[in-house]
C-alpha cells in the first residue's frame, strides 16, 4: 500500500514540478520582492494558462492526498 502510494507520489511530484515550470513566471526578481521598484503586470491569463491552472490544481490535490495517505499508512 505504502509502496504503491509512494510510486504514485513520485510520479505526481515530477509532474507537478513540470506543470509549475510551464507556467509563465509572474513577478520578477528580488528587487520587487522586498519593496523595491513598482511593477505592475497587467496581463490577462490566456486559455492555455487557464487549462494549465486547472491541471495543476488537480495534480496538487492528488499530491496532497498521497502525502496524507502515506502519513496515515506509516503510523
Amino acid at each position: 500500500m505504502t509502496t504503491a502510494l509512494s510510486i504514485v507520489l513520485i510520479i505526481v511530484s515530477v509532474l507537478m514540478v513540470l506543470l509549475v515550470l510551464l507556467h509563465r513566471g509572474k513577478g520578477g526578481g528580488l528587487s520587487d520582492m522586498f519593496g523595491g521598484g513598482v511593477s505592475s503586470s497587467l496581463s490577462g491569463s490566456s486559455v492555455v494558462e487557464k487549462n494549465l491552472d486547472r491541471m495543476t490544481i488537480v495534480c496538487g490535490f492528488i499530491w496532497a492526498a498521497c502525502v496524507i495517505g502515506i502519513g496515515f499508512s506509516l503510523k
Partner: peptide, 11 residues
C-alpha cells in the same frame, strides 16, 4: 522528490 515538489508548489 516530495520536498522538491513542495518547493515548486510554494513557488
Amino acid at each position: 522528490v516530495t520536498m522538491t515538489a513542495g518547493t515548486a508548489v510554494i513557488m
